[in-house]
Design a protein around this nucleic acid. Structure first.
Lengths: 337, 337
DNA sequence: CTGAAAGCGCTTACAG
DNA sequence: CTGAAAGCGCTTACAG
C-alpha cells in the first residue's frame, strides 16, 4: 500500500549516527563495535522497522537463500509429505530461508537446473533419475530416511525406528488374539516400506508364524489393492490381522471385511503403517503408526541449517532419530468378550 | 562438486566479445542490439552454461523473486491443497520464481513479516487475523476462491463453478433413486462449502424436498462427524443419499452405513464434494467432485505472473474459471435391479 | 573501536 | 547500434 521505499541499512546508520559498516556489524552481532553503539543501532533499526534485504545479503554471500525440497511423486496424495513439508517450512522461515518444492518431473522430462543452497530429499528412491540430476548439482544434501547407497554421500540423515514400531504393533496384534498377521506393501523402493516388511518377516520367523506379504503395484494401485485383500482374506487359511502400508490399502481392507464375512476390529485386526487424518473417521477408527512427520521435517531442516552454517561435521554424516509412536484405535481392539 | 565459480554475465560478454551491457540486452531480448550480436551472445551463454544470478537480478529490480502462498490451517490434511500447491510451484518454476509456503500460525502467534512479490491465498477465510496481516503487507494478491468482501481488493480471483457441479451431483442422486438427499458440511467460513450448501438448499427448494444439513464442528471433528451421521441415518425419516464435504465425513458415512442397516452404494448413496485418492480404494468406491486442484493452482500462478509483469488490468480484477467434473463411482450407483 | 571503500552480479539510463 | 558507468543493499577486509 504505502509506496514509500523500504528502509535500508543506510537509513538505520544515519538514524543512529554511525557508518553503514558499523551498523552492519552491530546488527549481525559481530565484534568490533562497542556495546553502547550496538544498542543504539538496534534501537534505530527497531524504530525504523528495518528488515535486511535478503537479495543483497545473498548476492554478497554468494548464496541463494533457497532450500530445495524433493519429494516422491506420490507426495501430493499423502498427508505425510504435506506435514513434513510444513515442518521444513516452519524451521526455514525462522532462519530467513525460503523453501522451494521441486516437482517430480513427468518421466522423460528434464528438471530445470535449480539454484539452491541445499537439498532436502525425503524418501529418496534408488534409480530416480531426477534425484540423480539434483544431487549432481553439488549442493549439500540432507536426506529424510536413508539415502540409497549408490548416491554420493549426504551431509545429514534423519530417520525413525520403523523396525521397533512395527514389532510393537505386531506384538499388539498378537496380544489381541491375532494368529495370522499379514502385510500389504507397495512394490518397489521406498526404504521405509522395506524396513517395515523386513521387520515383519523377522517377527514371523521368531514366532514361527507363516509370512503373508502382499505387494501392490503402483501403476494400478486400486486394482492390485483389491486383489491383495482378496488373496489375504479369501484364502482357505486367511489372515486375521493386516498391517497395511498405505492409506488406500487399509481403507480397502476395512471396507471389504464384511464381504469376506469378517468384522474389522473384532475378528479381523487392521492397522496402518502411517497415520493420516482420515483414519480417525472410519467405523471402526483405525490404529496407525504416527510417524510424526512435522517433527521429521523440522529435524531435516535443522540439520541443513547446521550444515550451511558450518556447525556440522564435514567428515561424517550427521544423524538424527525422530521418535515415532502408535496411535491405538478401535480397529485392533480384538474380540469383545 | 566442481568448486569452480559460477559463470557470470561478464564471462559471457568476454566470450562473445561484447560489453556486459550488450550481453544483458541480448539475453533479455531487449532492443538495442543487432540480431547478429544477439545470436553470438546467445551461443556464448549456451556454451558456457550461463545462468543468471537471481539474487543480483532481484536486487537490481527491487524484487524478491518469491511468491508467498497462504493455505488454510487444515491444508496439510487435505490432498487438495497439496495438489494445488504443486500446480502453483510448477508454474512458478518455469518463470524462475520461488514459492514459499506461509504456515498458518498457531492462534495468538504473529507471523514474521515476509518478503515476497506477491501473495496467493487459497480459500481465504473472513476474519482470519494472519490473512489480514499478510494482506496489509501491500503486495499484489491473487485469491483462489472468493476473497471475503471485508478485505482489500485482490488483483485476481480464480474460481470454479461449485454450484453447477453440486446441482449435477444432486440430479445424479435423484436419477438413481434418492428421495431424501442430505449434506454434511464443516462449520464456518470456507466459501466453497457455503456455495455447495447453498446450491443444495436451492435444489431442495426447487424439488420440494426437505433440507437435511448437518454441520460438523472443526474443533471436534471426529465426534461431531459421528453425531452428524447418526442424525441423518438414525432419524425416523432418514436420508437416503449423503453429499459429504470432507473426506472424513464421507468415510464415516460409508463405514457406518451397515450399523444403520444400510448398504452404501445401494440403498444409501454417498458422494464427496472433493475428490481424494483414498476414495478409489474403498468398497464401494466413492463418487466425488474432481476440483482439478493442480490446474487451479496453475491458474492462480498464471494470473500472478500477469500481474507482476503488468500484463493484467490494474483497474479490474482478473477472473478465471477452472472447470470441475464429477468422478462417478460405485457409491452412487443405486439399487441393483 | 570506527569509517571509507570495494565489490557481489546484474540492469539501464546515458553518451558516443 | 554499442560501451562505460552508476547503482540496487548488503558485508567485510583494510586503514586509521
Amino acid at each position: 500500500m504505502s509506496p514509500k521505499r523500504a528502509v535500508t541499512l543506510q537509513d538505520v546508520a544515519d538514524h543512529a549516527g554511525v557508518s553503514r559498516g558499523a551498523a552492519s556489524f552491530a546488527l549481525t552481532g559481530r565484534n568490533g563495535v562497542s556495546e553502547a553503539t550496538r544498542e543504539r543501532v538496534r534501537a534505530s533499526a527497531e524504530a525504523l522497522g528495518y528488515r535486511p534485504n535478503l537479495s543483497a545479503r545473498n548476492l554478497r554471500a554468494a548464496r541463494t537463500g533457497v532450500i530445495a525440497v524433493y519429494l516422491p511423486a506420490v507426495a501430493p496424495t499423502l498427508s505425510y509429505y504435506a506435514e513434513a513439508t510444513f515442518g521444513i517450512v516452519n524451521e526455514a522461515m525462522a532462519a530467513g530461508l525460503v523453501v522451494t518444492l521441486v516437482p517430480s518431473p513427468a518421466p522423460g522430462t528434464i528438471l530445470p537446473r535449480l539454484r539452491a543452497d541445499g537439498l532436502i530429499a525425503i524418501d529418496p528412491a534408488p534409480g530416480d533419475p531426477a534425484l540423480e540430476q539434483l544431487l549432481s548439482a553439488g549442493m549439500p544434501v540432507v536426506s529424510g530416511e536413508e539415502m540409497p547407497a549408490e548416491y554420493r554421500r549426504v551431509r545429514g540423515e534423519v530417520r525413525s525406528d520403523h523396525t521397533a514400531a512395527t514389532l510393537r504393533l505386531l506384538d499388539h496384534f498378537h496380544a489381541n488374539g491375532a494368529k495370522a498377521p499379514a502385510v500389504i506393501s507397495p512394490e518397489g523402493s521406498l526404504g521405509w516400506a522395506e524396513e517395515v516388511t523386513t521387520a515383519y518377516r523377522a517377527w514371523c520367523a521368531e514366532h514361527g508364524i507363516k509370512e503373508r506379504v502382499e505387494v501392490v503395484r503402483l501403476d494400478s494401485l486400486p486394482e492390485s489393492t483389491v486383489a491383495a485383500t482378496e488373496t489375504l482374506l479369501g484364502a482357505r487359511d486367511p489372515a486375521d490381522a493386516i498391517l497395511a502400508l498405505t492409506e488406500g490399502s487399509v481403507l480397502n481392507v476395512l471396507t471389504s471385511a464384511t464381504e469376506y464375512g469378517r468384522s474389522a476390529g473384532n475378528d479381523l485386526l487392521v492397522a496402518a503403517a502411517v497415520d493420516s487424518p482420515a483414519l480417525q473417521f472410519t467405523e471402526p477408527t483405525i490404529t496407525a503408526i504416527d510417524l510424526n512427520p512435522r517433527e521429521f521435517g523440522r529435524a531435516c531442516m535443522r540439520i541443513m541449517l547446521d550444515v550451511l552454517e558450518d556447525r556440522a561435521s564435514t567428515s561424517e554424516v550427521v544423524r538424527h532419530n525422530v521418535p515415532i509412536e502408535i496411535n491405538f484405535r478401535d480397529s485392533t481392539r480384538g474380540k469383545r468378550v
